[in-house]
Every structure is written in C-alpha cells, then in structure tokens.
Design a binder for these strands. Structure first.
Lengths: 339, 339
DNA sequence: TATTTCTGTTCATACGTATGCACAGTTTAA
DNA sequence: TTAAACTGTGCATACGTATGAACAGAAATA
C-alpha cells in the first residue's frame, strides 16, 4: 500500500482504454459512452485513483488554492472570521491556504514565495499591510478580494462591513435612550474600520437638523485590545467625567473597560454608564460581559467574500464588485433601550 | 505586467545559458561558476522569476504544503494553537493548508480531494475524527504528526501535552491547600485529553500511600464549552454539596461555571470554592475570570509538532517519535495557594 | 448510393522543472 | 608527456494531466 499513487495511465491500462479517455471521463461535457465511463470509474476506484493536482495545475494555470491573508488570528473576531472563510472556501471545492503576515519583516519574502504557488485567488483581510500583496497578485492576473480595507484604487473586488452604519446605529440608540453625554472610543492606531465606525457615530450626532442637547466626545486608547480597555477604564475613572454612554469601536476594548469598571466598584453598568460595542465577538455574550453590541456577521462577510471570488473566477473580466454587509444591534445587558 | 509568469527558460535565454543551468543555479550543491550564477540571478530578478511550484511538485513528489487538520477553530485554545502552527510552518518555508473536518458528513469527500494535493506532511490535532485520515496519508507515504490524540497503533509521530501531569498538578495544589472535598469536571463526550486529565487528578488523590482525608468525586457536563459550564454551575448550586475545590478539565467550562457562581451570588471564589482550569486560554487571564489554570503552551506544542514533521521529512525512515509537553501551574485569583 | 453529420476513441503534445548523462576544457597526477 | 580526475555546461527526458487534431465507424440526410 505504500506505493506511489495510481496515475490516469494506470487506470487507462486497467480499463483497456487510452489515458486521454480516462481524463475525458471526468469531464461531464465530454462525449464518452456510458459503458466506457463505467469501466473507467470502476478501474479508478479499484486503484484508488486521485487526480494529481500538481499536473492539473500546470495545465490549468490554477491550483484551486485560495490564499487567506491575515495578520495573525489571535483576536477572537479575526479567528471567527477566518473560520468562516475556511468553511466557505472548502464548500466551493477550493482549498484554503493561510498566509500570516504578522511579521512585517518577512512580508517581502513571504510574498515572493507565495507567487510560486499558482493560487486561484487571494482574500485579504483587514489589518494586513497588504497594498503590495494585492498589487503583486493583480499584476499576475490572480483575482483578489479585499475585506474591510480602505483601498479603492485597485481592480480588486471589495467587501466591507458597513462600519459607518454601525456607528450610526449606536448613536441612534443613545439618542433614543435620552443620553446626555456620550463618548466614542477607538485605538490610536487608526484602522480603516475603526475610523469609519467612529465617523458614523459622530456624524449621526452632529447632524444639523438634530436638536443637539447631546454632548459627544472622541477618545483614544493605545491599542485595540483588552488590556487597552482596562487602562482606558482606569484612567477615565481616575480623571472623572464619566459619560452616561460609551460606544467602543471594538468589543475587545469594551470588555477590558467593563472589567475595569467592575473592579473599581464605583460605577454600575448600565445604570451609570451604558456601553455599546462593535463586532459581537464570542465572549460578548458571556455573562461576565453581556455586551450590547453592533453585530458584524463573520459568516455573512466570509460567504460574500468567497462568492465574489467565485464570480471573478467564472467571469474574469467582469467589472469589480463593491459590497456592503449590514450592521445590526444585538441587545444585552450593558445597554438596555427604553421600551 | 498582466503577463504570464516568467519561466526558467525565459531566464535562461536572457542570461545566455541553458534552462538546466538556471535550475542548477538555485541548487547550492551544484557545480556552477560564480560568474554564471550571477548572470542567472540578475536575469531572474529582471524578469521577476519565481519557480513554478506545480512543476516542481511533479518532480519532487512534494508540494511543501502541510495539511493542518482541525475540527473547527471556534474555541479559543484551538485557534491559538492553530495560529502557532501556522507561524511555525511558515518559518520552515512550508505552507499551511487548513482542513476543517467539523462536518463529519463531508469527511470522506474531503479526504479524497486532499489526497490530490501532494502534501509534504499532515498535522492532525485533537478532536478530529481522523483515524481514517491518518491511515490514508500514511498509506501513501505522507508523514503524519498526531497532536493530543489517543492513537498509538500507527507509524505516525506523536506529540502530547502531558495531560496526566496536568491533572496531578491540580490535585497536588488542592492537597497542599488543605482542601477536604474536591471535584473534577469534564464533558460527557470523552475526549482523550479530558479523560487523561481527569485520570491524572483522581490518580494523584487515590495514591495508596497518601493519608486520604480528602474526598474526591468526578462529575460530567454535557459538552466542553462555556454554556455547559453555566448549566453545570446552576445545577450544582441548586443541588447543594458545593465542594471546596474543583478542577475543570477545560478552561472554557470553568469560565461558564465562574459566571454561574457570580450570578447566583451565593458562593464566593476562591473563598468558598477554589477553581483550577486547564489549558490557559486567552480569556483565562481576564479580570472577569482570573482563572488559576494548568498551562498548555500552544506555542511549544506547535513548534514541537512542526519540528517532528521536519525531522521526518529529513529522515523518512527514522523510528517514530513520541514526545510529551510539560504542564505548569499559572496562579491567578480563582485559586490561591497557601504560602 | 453518395455525402454529410455525429459519436466515441486515440495520438501527440504542452505545461515548467530537475537531473542523469555526455562532453569539452582544465587541472592534477603519474 | 600521457593518463586521470575534476569543473562547468548543455542535451534529453520524465513527471501526470488536459486538449486540439485526426480518424474510424455509425447514423442521418440528400
């Protein structure tokens, strides 16, 4: 059994036909008699024949491999998203190849070796330092899908969560709940998504038509992670001036903030300060956080991205697509609307 | 620029040498004059030449692709581990290809198509219904590394977290702290890891030499996730008989339990009941949980697995390796040792 | 019946790389 | 000085598949 794999030639010999007939048997549009096809399939089964993708790739110039470019999969939303991407890719009969470009030092080298594989397509997720990556693949004629990225220049298909709408929704909830002083918090390191969310939030509160008895302020924390949320919370408690509503551009930060508040014991959530996050990461629903948040559906984003790629493979010269994925409020304990 | 990739023949022509000379230029053990090599590299750079992996694979019978077989990457430990695996694989100049076999229905089909790629190796992680997967690859002569799996029969290399030691460590801590009545909790669905952890825990407490004034009981919850921990906690609170120490075979369950306890307000952690988890997932350190736990180093596991694979590639016929990765207690708030 | 269309198959070749073999030129050994 | 060893390069081929072209026979058309 520890033999080399059976080839189509082996199958051909066993079935008593030519190699080309074997190959054509697997093409549904080919003119092959039923009896011959049966013979071929029987022989193939007996030999456990599996097509050699490497050989196939040489001819098709396509490997059915899809590159999923990401900057780490440490944080929960990213890994959920990647999980959904993997499943969606698999469902289409393609194979996901992960490319982690966390280490920017290695980016160039990574990119070089990546071009060696004849990828069918590349899906680039947010946070990636990827202008270069995208361009390199587009130059080679490999389809590229950008997810949650600012880039507009390219010929790539683009899938974006409706970040502005997310911010707007949060703002509307605070207004409807009669809040007087609200804050929006994002990380100093400006990611496209966070900036748009913050803009959406501020924009909705600064609309000229609105009688603005509501006060809004933008604040920053160091990074977009849990620890930054803790630090931000401690500082805000110490400095005073706690608002009655805060919109965090990332759930992660919100969770850190909540822990800081609870630990201090000074304020109560949502009575003194109501909190809305964004993304709906897994732990947002945990009782310790019970975070009201704007959901970004990882599943929906992923399946849209893969569908876009599939469409591009089917129609390589179609005009680029640009698609927005809707936002929705998920109510939990950290903010409760007036009913 | 939207051209087909340059081939070694193109490089050869530009450099004024033969294709075989180009190929040999990239082999450090080949006899090539310095001047020729320089000419070749210069030409290659000018044409942005990158070797075609598909063609290379046909000759080498190796794609440098490593299959990472996993059952979903939803839960935090799994995704951390996968993250480490991806990085470790990339570091060796190999490429990670994810294979998610969550859907057992598709397993067979997945497996079939997988064999089409000439994978250099396969790393199979726990929870995978993978006896079949492993055997299929071994039969084809593809190296297989099993991580945290019970399988012993095969010719694969095996990397295991020292699950028994983890359980033992937890038990020893409870003994040293003078606990009287302890529990070990795992999911009904018996995974290899959980069973071994539980056995290690019970074994350490039932040693014949020990003067056993300590009472130990094993309990089960439905699944190995957060929600099961919540349910388990509620039931235990309702039924009474709260022990003074609980070892959870998975951090995940422990987090759910902690939330259930806090929500009920009846007991205090760690005063009434001390808690030790296992794995050290990301959120274990969050203030909401501050979980004392037995760390399973994802990084260490991953780099060991990849190193084992690398060794196997270098020496295909070496005897199978079996390696244990050590456990260590991480102290946080849910259990504080007497000092 | 002669011609055309259709069906089912085989032949031959291309994809891009690595490598055994042959060979010419150069250096070392005898 | 002649033989032997070594160095650097090119030629030819194999890897396994897909596909255009050719072709033989059957069926349909004129």
């Amino acid at each position: 059994m520890n033999k080399a794999n059976a080839t189509s030639a082996d199958v051909a010999q066993l079935a008593g036909v030519s190699q080309s007939t074997v190959s054509r048997s697997y093409d549904p549009n080919s003119r092959i008699s039923k009896s011959t096809r049966q013979k071929v399939f029987a022989a193939a089964e007996k030999l456990h024949y599996q097509v050699n993708k490497a050989a196939q790739t040489m001819i098709n110039k396509r490997s059915d491999l899809v590159g999923l470019v990401t900057a780490g999969l440490g944080d929960p939303f990213r890994s959920e998203f990647l999980n959904s991407l993997v499943l969606a890719v698999q469902e289409k009969g393609l194979r996901p190849m992960i490319i982690d470009v966390t280490d920017e030092q290695m980016l160039d080298q990574q990119l070089q070796t990546l071009l060696q594989y004849q990828l069918s397509g590349v899906i680039i997720t947010s946070g990636t330092p990827s202008e270069a990556v995208a361009n390199a693949f587009i130059a080679r004629g490999t389809p590229v899908v950008l997810v949650n990225r600012a880039d507009h220049s390219s010929e790539a298909d683009i899938i974006n969560f409706d970040n502005e709408a997310a911010g707007r929704l949060a703002a509307q909830e605070f207004v409807a709940a009669g809040k007087h002083k609200v804050m929006v918090v994002r990380s100093k390191v400006s990611s496209y998504s966070s900036v748009m969310r913050s803009n959406g939030f501020k924009g909705a509160l600064l609309e000229p038509m609105r009688d603005s008895s509501i006060q809004v302020e933008e604040r920053f924390c160091e990074l977009g992670d849990y620890d930054s949320g803790i630090i931000f919370g401690k500082e805000l408690i110490a400095s005073g001036g706690m608002p009655d509503g805060i919109f965090f551009c990332m759930d992660y930060i919100a969770c850190g903030f909540i822990d800081a508040i609870k630990h201090s014991g000074v304020y109560s959530i949502p009575r003194d300060v109501a909190i809305i996050g964004c993304d709906d990461i897994t732990i947002a629903r945990y009782q310790a956080y019970a975070l009201t948040t704007i959901r970004q559906s990882a599943k929906e984003m992923a399946s849209s991205a893969v569908s876009a790629l599939q469409a591009r493979l089917d129609h390589p010269s179609a005009p680029p697509i640009q698609q927005k994925i809707g936002a929705a409020v998920i109510f939990r304990h950290s903010f409760v609307p007036n009913h």
